[in-house]
Design a protein around this nucleic acid. Structure first.
Lengths: 369, 369
DNA sequence: GGATTAACGGCAAACGTTTCCGATCCATAT
DNA sequence: ATATGGATCGGAAACGTTTGCCGTTAATCC
């Protein structure tokens, strides 16, 4: 017994001799309480005597102590870290989303781990693994589409998940539904109202669910307006500037040119704008262009881009909310919330009457504009 | 004593009865070795028998086990997390930087914690605190300028740091030096060679060190070309689109208009382009514009932007390298590396001859006017 | 063939918290 | 005066690893 005592004391002394070590024990010693009380004070457990709590807080303030979150997470089982996986951080849509996600997460005491997969399943897999190792409390997969095997890797472990558009059903899994149809229909109707009948679409990456949804919404909206979709005017793209430029170049060689083009995202639309500029053609005079996302720079493109707005903030907020509900979940009443994200058309200056329409119109209508 | 013994046994049994618990102990049991050996196997300690290692690995693979990094960090003292603080993630320059930083960090086994401060000292302070709580192995402060008090908060704790441009001297602190002068001089000389003598500058945020450096480099480069700087042509800005637009609007009201304008960053330049467009003026015919950063979309602005390239990749690589050197540091030979980042002009189409030079070539006509 | 040694595996302490459980104390009811 | 009980606080186990130290084994040398 005496041996044991002296032994532990010796070791403790040895490590304590460095004065800058600062842990909960130091605080306990200086405040003359036990470490349990310090812990309770920090976590604001109501049963601690206010008098003592004050003393403890004073010591904490003076030493500028803060708890080690590793140790905290180890024992409590909660890391207070949320994972966020995006497909490409260099697409301006995502930084705006990340910003919102971080703001809301931090507000609720969470840290975030962001990873950009660049559509590479290999990277995706690796980054899921890394997040699981860090014992994240939840993951928001905002890649707008995910491969099934990777998804299983995540779903196996019982970590709360949030997907966009599509995802498996299961406990702790939420799917944010984006109403692409609403905004895209507005866009098509806007074009149709201007007199467009020949409308092309530059789609997103093959296999990306949100890209398919946008295309589907486009085709259906076309039909609603009584316009038959022309397969030759549905062009491949990849949601990048370069993809937009390439698709537009291809379109320019077509024998029958459309008078308007909708793009699966704003980056594509900006690429289209640039190819038009290179070709010496004018937007919207020679071609009307509509984007999707309403990223910040869409306001200052030349001309400013008409586009469909999808709120990054709503998306981020819904994601964090869903994750929190699962992680901190009382598990009872709050089951399976439906999270819906709205989309809306923002009309700027990249859309106008189709070429030739103006001069053929009766003068009164022309004057109206 | 007997009480204590049976008590612990009971608890152990209780927690172990859940079959899905998976830790190093489970692996040890199934591989019929001690947990120490499992740990050594995972960490590739060379003294473990290859035969045994193979057996351990097989069990690990089969159960798809991975170690808990919290526990790992707790005992080893290393979190393998690097912090990255940027000023505004919505400025496209930073996502490109973050991408590079993440790539290189992950490559070396690190995770990254990104925070965007939006130039708010309050946020900055909060995010430094959060990073310290998470026990990051190092922090890269890529805000291109930092307030002194916040800096102390970081420097007090002995966490390796990397700054850009300016930072305190001390052990474990590295400063990445960006050679703004080189690229900016190229820009000024480019304009001077085209015949410009009246060159304005839209600066970055007041108090941001890199913004001041860019302005200084501009003024000095002007002098080198024998041009006297005109204070009226040095306009305030804030590195945003809106700032660029506002500055340009102000410039348009000047009685004596410059023929060219250099901007402290590309976002500002894009704002300038847009204001010119709104005013019905043409770039580069009516005004030459040069940006700084060479963000990706600078390629597709209308017209494509002449700008000064600063490599995000070099910056990210230097930051991670410096941080790793400090964190894993053998502390001996590799002291105080100098990290220099080069800048270079990229000529595109937003720069041209000053107005009047070309078409009014006969000088007498111009003089008559 | 016995001793020296190198290789290797296991025991247990340590990392810094949280939290269960028991102990103490004072006030109140009996 | 004693039993009851709530309010507080302290002791100590537990979280899942790493790692120093020691014991065992087998190989090598004289």
């Amino acid at each position: 017994m005496a041996n044991l005592g002296s032994d532990t004391k010796k070791k403790r002394t040895k490590t304590t001799k460095t004065p800058e070590r600062m842990d909960i024990r130091t605080i306990a010693r200086l405040a003359k309480v036990s470490i349990a009380t310090v812990s309770r004070t920090i976590n604001r457990v109501p049963t601690v005597n206010p008098k003592i709590a004050k003393r403890v807080w004073e010591v904490i303030e003076e030493l500028d102590y803060f708890p080690n979150s590793q140790a905290r997470a180890l024992v409590s089982g909660r890391s207070w870290i949320l994972g966020l996986i995006v497909s490409e951080i260099t697409n301006p849509f995502f930084p705006e989303l990340i910003q919102g996600f971080e703001d809301i997460a931090v507000e609720h005491g969470y840290e975030i781990l962001v990873s950009s997969t660049n559509h590479d399943p290999k990277r995706m897999s690796h980054c899921i693994r890394r997040m699981l190792e860090r014992k994240v409390d939840g993951v928001a997969v905002m890649t707008f589409g995910i491969e099934a095997p990777l998804l299983d890797q995540l779903a196996q472990r019982k970590v709360p998940l949030v997907f966009v558009d599509v995802g498996p059903d299961g406990p702790g899994i939420n799917v944010l539904k984006v109403d692409y149809h609403h905004g895209i229909r507005q866009g098509v109707q806007h074009l149709a109202a201007l007199g467009h009948r020949k409308i092309a679409f530059i789609r997103g990456p093959e296999g990306l669910h949100s890209a398919q949804s946008r295309l589907d919404a486009f085709i259906e909206s076309l039909r609603e307006c009584g316009i038959a979709p022309n397969p030759a005017w549905i062009l491949p793209g990849d949601h990048t500037l370069e993809g937009g430029m390439a698709a537009m170049r291809q379109l320019l060689t077509a024998k029958d040119m459309p008078t308007a083009v909708m793009c699966s995202n704003d980056m594509t639309a900006i690429g289209v704008l640039h190819t038009m500029y290179r070709a010496g053609l004018r937007v919207p005079d020679d071609l009307s262009v509509i984007g999707f996302d309403n990223i910040h720079i869409a306001e200052v493109t030349i001309p400013p881009l008409t586009t469909v707005q999808m709120s990054r903030f709503d998306l981020a907020k819904a994601a964090v909310t869903a994750l929190r509900a699962c992680a901190e979940g009382t598990e009872k009443s709050e089951q399976k919330h439906e999270y819906n994200i709205q989309t809306d058309l923002v009309v700027r200056e990249s859309t106008g009457f189709p070429r030739g329409t103006m001069k053929d119109l009766p003068k009164k209508i022309r004057a109206k504009k």
